[in-house]
C-alpha cells in the first residue's frame, strides 16, 4: 500500500441537513499534503472551501471519508490544527498577550509560567506585535488583530496551520504586509499550511500548490497546480518570472473558464 501523506484527505463527502433534504457541499474530495507544504484552496464563493477546512479542523464532521493527520484519524477539533479565522475571533475582554496565552496554556503543558510568558512574547515578536502585548483587541487596527490571530495560531505549535481567508477583510496594503509576515514565518517555521483565499496573486505568491475547486454544490477538486518558485519569494521580483505568470494565468483561466462553462471542470 502506498505511503499515506502527512495530511491525507480521503474520499471526504460533507452533507448538511436542510429543510429540503441533505445538501451535499463537498463530493468525494481526495487531497494529500506533505509535511511543510503550503497549500492554497481557491474557488468561487460558496464552493465549499471553508467546509473542507472546517472538516480538517474537526469543526464539522465528514459524512463519508476520512482525514488523516500524521497517520491519526481527525475526529474532533484540537490545538494541533490551529485555525486563523477570517474575523480573527480574538476575545475582546482579554489583552493581546492574554489571547495568545490562552492558546499557549492549553498546548504548553509542563512548561513553567515564565517559559510560557516568554513563548507568548516570542510569538508576538514573530508577527511584530510585541509592542501591543498589553492592548485590547478593540484598541488595535484590523491588520494588527489578524497578526495577533496568526500569533495565537502558531503559538499552539500546530501540526497543521489552517487559515480561513485570513486577509479577506483587510485593505490591499495591509494584506500585502501580512502576506510578507506569513512568508517570513513559513521560512522560519516550515509549517504545514492549508489556506483558503479568493485572491489569485495571494495564492500563487504564498503557496507551493494551488488547489482549485469547482463550484458547489457537490464541489470537487478541479485542478491542482504546483507553483515551483524558489523561496524566499519577493513580491516585486517574482512578478517578472515566467513561472509566476504561468501559474497565475492557469488559476485565472480555471476560475473564469469554469465560471462560464462548468462542464469543463474535470
Amino acid at each position: 500500500m502506498k505511503q499515506r501523506s502527512y495530511l491525507a484527505i480521503e474520499g471526504v463527502t460533507v452533507e448538511f441537513a436542510t429543510k429540503t433534504g441533505p445538501f451535499r457541499a463537498l463530493d468525494h474530495i481526495d487531497l494529500s499534503i506533505e509535511k511543510g507544504q503550503f497549500v492554497s484552496l481557491i474557488g468561487h464563493s460558496g464552493c465549499g472551501k471553508s467546509t473542507l477546512l472546517n472538516a480538517v479542523a474537526g469543526l464539522n464532521k465528514p459524512t463519508r471519508g476520512v482525514i488523516f493527520l500524521d497517520g491519526e484519524v481527525v475526529d474532533a477539533p484540537g490545538p494541533d490544527r490551529a485555525v486563523v479565522f477570517q474575523d480573527h475571533s480574538l476575545l475582546p475582554w482579554l489583552t493581546v498577550a492574554e489571547n495568545v496565552a490562552l492558546a499557549v496554556g492549553k498546548t504548553a503543558q509542563g512548561k513553567s509560567k515564565a517559559e510560557q510568558r516568554d513563548w507568548v512574547m516570542h510569538t508576538l515578536d514573530l508577527v511584530q506585535m510585541g509592542h501591543a502585548a498589553t492592548k485590547r483587541p478593540g484598541e488595535i487596527s484590523g491588520g494588527m488583530k489578524q497578526r495577533v490571530g496568526i500569533a495565537r495560531a502558531i503559538a499552539m505549535n500546530p501540526r497543521v496551520l489552517l487559515m480561513d481567508e485570513p486577509f479577506g477583510a483587510l485593505d490591499a496594503l495591509t494584506r500585502a504586509a501580512l502576506q510578507d509576515v506569513v512568508m517570513d514565518l513559513q521560512s522560519q517555521l516550515q509549517n504545514t499550511v492549508l489556506m483558503i483565499t479568493h485572491d489569485v496573486d495571494e495564492a500563487v505568491l504564498l503557496s507551493d500548490r494551488v488547489v482549485m475547486m469547482t463550484n458547489g454544490p457537490s464541489a470537487r477538486i478541479g485542478q491542482d497546480r504546483t507553483v515551483d518558485l524558489a523561496r524566499p519569494r519577493n513580491r516585486l521580483t517574482v512578478m517578472d518570472l515566467p513561472d509566476y505568470g504561468a501559474a497565475r494565468s492557469d488559476v485565472i483561466r480555471f476560475l473564469h473558464e469554469f465560471h462560464r462553462n462548468p462542464s469543463l471542470a474535470a
Binding site: A57, G58, L59, A76, P77, G78, P79, R81, A82, V83, F85, D87, S89, L91, L102, A103, K106, M156
Partner: peptide
Amino acid sequence: IPASYRNVARVLAL
C-alpha cells in the same frame, strides 16, 4: 455568544 468564540474554544479544546 458569537459562533466564532465557540469555535475558538473548540480549537483550543477548552
